[in-house]
Amino acid sequence: MINFILKRISIAIPTILILIIISFILMHSAPGGPFTSEKPLPEQVLKNINAKYGLDQPMYIQMYNYITGIIFNFDFGPSFRYKDRSVNDLIAQGFPVTLKYGSWSFIIAVFFGVSLGVIAAIRQNSYLDYLSVGFSVSAQVLPNFVMAPILVLIFTLWLGWLPGGGWEGGKIQFVIMPVIALSTSYMASIARLTRSSMLEVLNSNFIRTARAKGIPKYKIIFSHALKPTLLPVISYLGPAFVGMITGSVVIDMYFSTGGIGLHFVNGALNRDYSTIMGITILIGCLTITFNLLVDIIYAWIDPKIRYDS
């Protein structure tokens, strides 16, 4: 097990480094520097600004400084647009918001997705099953950017129950719609996965044996069938996490919740390179760490993985 974990970590670290290097090179291959504008600055001013941000040094030194800054000080450098704020400030301000509705969405998607899938599989071909299958099929075409306007249309414009945007320190009525919009399609995918996996498990020999021994049905499901059922679901958690973090950009835009997604899009529209780069790297690290965790959990549940690779 420890070998397995070490092996995974030894893949994760170079991945993060490659991500940083790729985005750094991308940023530097952009036509024009970050301070070229339509009204050209006097040469001396431009020189001074470049010197201040260390842009006059050779590229490999800049890259070295940038990487060591991130690793040792968790410093993503200054924002090129907002003179008074660093990328760290933007992240510190936006991240708690994203974390709050993001983790709620994740918990809700997993919990309700799994429950829905299990219920559908136990009551196969019942109305409950059809309902759950119907839901999971239709939610495929309702990604967050479709859900968000529909929710606002229904709950804000027609019913007037919930505010159409804002955050206000994360009061419950401001969190509900972002969470629903973000979690629906993943809940549906998880339900689908759980259902088909559960059906397969329920048809296997060890369940038949358990049934033959006269073990009550709920006990078969919870203590025999659930664990193998969850394996494919766990391996889906990584992609679901990435999807939700990506989706948070839409949520921040549409509901004006002020998470890091908002800074990302603003950075992208204003060509604020250091901000989008910093956020990309941060999210990349989060994703890679999360995938590492998922892999470890998976190996912990399924010994086959541990010993095969």
Binding site: I11, A12, P14, T15, I18, L19, I22, S23, L26, M27, S29, A30, P31, V242, I245, T246, V249, F264, A268, R271, Y273, I276, M277, I279, T280, I283, G284, T287, I288, N291
Partner: peptide, 23 residues
């Protein structure tokens, strides 16, 4: 396949937007 694994664990939507902004 290791290359594919590495590329897959990068949140591609963000890299895609980075590309669009830069080029």
């Amino acid at each position: 396949m290791r290359i594919v694994d590495i590329l897959m664990s990068i949140p591609y939507m963000f890299v895609l937007i980075l590309l669009l902004v830069i080029f």
